[in-house]
Design a binder for these strands. Structure first.
Lengths: 105, 105
DNA sequence: TTGACAGGCAACCAAAAGGTTGCATATTGT
DNA sequence: ACAATATGCAACCTTTTGGTTGCCTGTCAA
């Protein structure tokens, strides 16, 4: 879970996931083409982190490696983490409003 | 948005949010008590990042500073980011399965 | 008024993160 | 077989991050 949050912390990696969502099963070089101004090795490292976080799964296909999006960990973030904050949303805002009013007095 | 993901990347900060959800409106010292083995300044820095990401709002109350959870940015992550991956969940898994089968042949 | 308490600020430090260059390895097409 | 293609691995560098120590400021209470 920590690995997932860390992996999502970088904008380039989020972009890679976006790109995989648009077209699943891309190779490293295909993904490099989209992320301009970065070497292949840098992209490769990002993909390695995403793979480690189980956000992408890879399949070796001859000399190329296909990258597939795995949305399950992202879904789990929503289930476990956002869900439990969701229920406290209105309460938290209410608390804050009260505190602001109390602070003025 | 980037600040929110970066803020959520650290386990200590996620813990602080959890703690604020459990009891909203805590002071810095109260939050320090829970996060053992860390100096007040370290916790203060974490809270500053969370505040910068708009995940907590603060109210100065005399000589103490109350911290309030703001769940809205987390909710926005769910809306904008998880939502759009949600719809591709089954498709992605299907693609992956096909790729695995193709790789075996 | 004078401690004691709550917090802020700045300098500093070690470790991790993001990126690069260079070279090695495996696969494919001709 | 051999050249081109696709990727992997390792060393290295710079910036960011997480954390510390030391000191300063503001507020409350006796």
């Amino acid at each position: 879970m920590d690995a997932v949050f860390k992996a999502l912390a970088d904008a380039s990696r989020r972009d890679l996931l976006d790109r995989l969502r648009a077209e699943n099963g891309q190779t490293l070089n295909q993904l490099c083409a989209g992320l301009a101004g970065m070497t292949r090795q840098a992209v490769s490292k990002h993909l390695a982190l995403l793979e480690q976080a189980n956000l992408v799964a890879t399949v070796k296909r001859g000399r190329e490696k296909l990258h597939y999006l795995n949305p399950v960990p992202i879904h789990e973030i929503g289930e476990r983490w956002i869900g439990k904050f969701e229920c406290s949303r209105l309460q938290a805002l209410s608390d804050l409003k009260k505190a602001l009013e109390a602070g003025e007095s």
